[in-house]
Design a protein around this nucleic acid. Structure first.
Ligand SMILES: [Mn+2]
Ligand SMILES: [Mn+2]
Ligand SMILES: [Zn+2]
Ligand SMILES: [Zn+2]
Lengths: 149, 149
DNA sequence: TACTGTTTGATAACAATTATCCGCCAATGT
DNA sequence: ACATTGGCGGATAATTGTTATCAAACAGTA
């Protein structure tokens, strides 16, 4: 099995290539920010990444972390867990149901709970996680955005 | 079929009962904020609700809207579309996969895409919506939080 | 009507994120 | 190796979304 360091070395090499391909300078800060973010499976916040990067580069600026994370998001090297993190979105539908989310205009439409066959889990869940409910988020283009595109 | 006004009258009546049950004063502001939020199927932001309420109560304060929306959320009269709207959460896993979200500590764990049988849609989608991908969000308690109950 | 705890509106404070600006450095060409 | 230059990093101001504070007004109760 590959060691963590070997995996990270591979990731960093791929990262360097990606930088050249996109005309991005490969700076020390950029590399550390990427390595830290890519090594985490816990879906950290920018602040959490900032704290980790500071251990290696105490002088790093929070703005630099944000700027690079956004670059990585645009490049597709990282993803955001959900598209709705900007502002609270309220839902008067208190029954279990699902959502259709437009990635262009961020509109959200309901799909009733019965609109989807019960979701079946194949693999084992992380030991001890107690599921209380679930919902499916379908991402794509809403009618309006699909039309004018 | 019930008219929109009849539906709203029913909602407002239920709302008044709910207020009495919970020892909440039923003020004009509170009633309008609830009626506006409950009548929307488009998952509006607090700002959007504020703009709509202002049409009926031009002097209403944004803080009042926020305070009441939070009261409605606690009461279970409204829900938030997602738990992750506070801050950006980054994900280095760029493959399709699902998430286990702890409603207590907000931790997020991955479930690989193959860990769930393909989701099947029963009902018709809103006409013209083009689905590009989907992911399932399982909500509950993570091992740590489930343990300390 | 008088009493009392709640609610409202105005605004300050706070948190998360982005914009601005300038000195510096990585990439490129010589 | 050196000079040039456009991008980059750090500091910090500005913006956005949300919550806290507080005095005046109000709803519930008797
Ligand atoms: Mn909904
Ligand atoms: Mn993930
Ligand atoms: Zn759209
Ligand atoms: Zn937890």
């Amino acid at each position: 099995m590959a060691s963590s360091k070997a995996v990270q070395a591979h990731l960093v090499a791929a990262f360097r290539d990606e930088c050249r391909r996109r005309g991005l300078a490969s700076t020390h800060q950029r590399e550390v920010i990427y390595r830290v973010a890519a090594s985490r499976i816990d879906h950290p916040t920018p602040e959490a990444i900032y704290d980790l990067v500071k251990r290696e580069i105490p002088s790093v600026s929070l703005a630099t972390v944000y700027k690079n994370l956004n670059i990585f998001l645009e490049a597709g090297l990282l993803r955001e867990v959900t598209m709705h993190h900007g502002s609270l979105r309220l839902d008067p539908n208190t029954h279990p149901h699902h959502h259709l989310v437009c990635e262009r205009c961020k509109s959200i439409a309901d799909l009733p709970g019965e609109g989807v066959e019960p979701v079946r889990i194949r693999s084992k869940l992380p030991k001890g996680f107690r599921v209380e409910r679930y919902s499916v988020e379908f991402t794509g283009l809403c009618p309006k955005c699909a039309q004018r595109q």
